[in-house]
């Protein structure tokens, strides 16, 4: 059953050195505040799973939290490289980073299989690609009914999943709307979970009968962190800060500018620093 706590307490309790951690949010609702908290609490040797490492893992990798990355697309969308990820892969800075590389289809299927309690995901994929040559976790299986050869990858079963959502009620039920990514699957696939939200409200409010709600009993910790997805976005609250994504290219390009930015904006700050980016829910959603 979800406990509503501070983000610091949630990370303290749920994220341990050496854990396999999935922090999801497909462009939308990326849990940046939680990433900063893990950096402040100096977690080490994490295996980080995420379809698109994005700025959140660029920061965590650059600050030495990760020993391995499991991913499918490692760029700064529409901008270019993730310089900290590249530095780790190409130069081993600040430490060597093992990578396990998939396609999006494989990652999405692996989360779904994890949520479904299956050991593997089966799909039609990787035909003609070199990825199976460099990733021993990509295998082929034969359909016992048709004989078709299909791709298989192990299910994602992270120790902890961390997502950002729009809001939770006081019981800890969580609402997701907009671009949903693989957040629901990640939480259901994980042993433990943390959900940061824009706001904790008495009632989740008007929504579609088929709205995506994660019930409180599927979640470990809920923390209210307004603005906690910045520079990603929260549908109906604030937009993706595309100019920050562009600015990150310069901040992260060199090690010293990166470290200076992290010191000033992460190490010397707390989750409340994200509140400046928060906006009230758009009137149309009321």
């Amino acid at each position: 059953m979800a406990r509503i706590t501070s983000l610091a307490e949630a990370v303290q309790a749920a994220v341990h050195d050496g854990d396999t951690v999935a922090m999801e949010g497909f462009t939308h609702l990326i849990p940046h505040a939680a990433g900063h908290e893990i950096i402040r609490q100096k977690r080490k040797n994490l295996t980080l799973i995420r379809m698109t490492p994005d700025l959140i893992y660029d920061q965590m990798i650059g600050m030495g939290c990760a020993k391995k990355l499991v991913f499918s697309w490692g760029g700064n969308p529409g901008v270019g490289s993730l310089h900290r990820l590249r530095d780790a892969v190409e130069q081993g800075w600040p430490n060597a980073l093992e990578i396990e590389e998939h396609s999006h289809a494989a990652m999405a299927n692996a989360y779904e299989a994890g949520a479904a309690g299956l050991p593997l995901a089966v799909f039609r994929g990787y035909l003609g690609s070199d990825l199976p040559k460099v990733n021993k976790n990509i295998k082929r299986v034969t359909c016992p009914f048709t004989g078709e050869e299909l791709a298989a990858v192990p299910a994602h079963r992270p120790d902890v999943a961390i997502i950002h959502a729009l809001r939770a009620d006081k019981a800890g039920n969580v609402l997701l709307e907009g671009v949903l990514g693989v957040q629901k699957e990640a939480v259901l696939a994980a042993k433990r979970s943390i959900v940061t939200v824009e706001e904790v409200v008495d009632d989740l409010g008007p929504r579609s009968l088929n709205a995506v709600v994660l019930p409180a009993w599927t979640i470990g910790y809920v923390s209210e962190v307004p603005g906690g997805a910045f520079p990603s976005y929260a549908q109906g609250y604030y937009a993706r800060n595309n100019s920050f994504y562009k600015a990150w290219d310069n901040i992260a390009r060199e090690r010293d500018t990166f470290l200076a930015w992290m010191k000033e904006n992460v190490l010397e700050k707390g989750p409340e620093a994200f509140a400046q980016h928060a906006r009230k829910r758009a009137a149309a959603a009321e």
Partner: peptide, 29 residues
Amino acid sequence: LPLSIGDGELCETALTTVSVPEMFRYWLQ
């Protein structure tokens, strides 16, 4: 034009938005 493949603009102007596993399984595959 979106900067990323998941800008809010894309969702707000879409007929509907499905999860990423559904996108890759039902629609693409």
